[in-house]
């Protein structure tokens, strides 16, 4: 498996994980009722990736909305990435937020405070 991709829906984000390129992108809305079920395949894919990771791993998160049920799963994803970072792949998380969306910026800062990986806060135009 070299690429892992999931099409977005009104309640779930588009996910693309280019394993050879070391690039993970999560974009859109993450408001499913059952987030654990939705995020499990990605967590499993990261588990596999951790044993054969690239020298650098770039993570782009660009969410418009996410619910509290997703927030736990996103933390799980970040914890996997933290382990990958410790395991020798330099991970960077680019947390995108729309101009004026202080709540989304704060959410990124919350993760930054918990997870030991370099975060970049990236402002995007509305």
């Amino acid at each position: 498996m070299e690429k892992y991709a999931i099409e977005g829906t009104p309640k779930t984000p588009t996910i693309s994980f280019d394993i050879q390129g070391g690039l993970l992108e999560i974009k859109g809305r993450s408001i499913p009722e059952n987030s654990i079920e939705f995020y499990k395949p990605l967590v499993d894919a990261l588990d596999k990736y951790s044993s054969a990771s690239q020298p650098t791993t770039t993570v782009n998160i660009q969410l418009e909305y996410f619910n509290t049920s997703s927030s736990k799963c996103i933390l799980d994803v970040f914890k996997k990435l933290e382990a990958i970072h410790k395991g020798g792949s330099a991970v960077t998380i680019n947390w995108h937020y729309e101009e004026d969306d202080e709540d989304m910026l704060e959410a990124g800062e919350d993760y930054q405070a918990i997870i030991n990986i370099p975060f970049k806060m990236v402002q995007v135009a509305e």
Partner: peptide, 24 residues
């Protein structure tokens, strides 16, 4: 903000998902 972070990081995820973060 602190309460949210502590529940997010330490709280048990219920099968239904939320784990008590909704109201916070």
């Amino acid at each position: 903000k602190d309460y949210y972070k502590s529940v997010l990081n330490n709280g048990e995820m219920s099968l239904k998902g939320g784990g008590g973060l909704g109201m916070i």
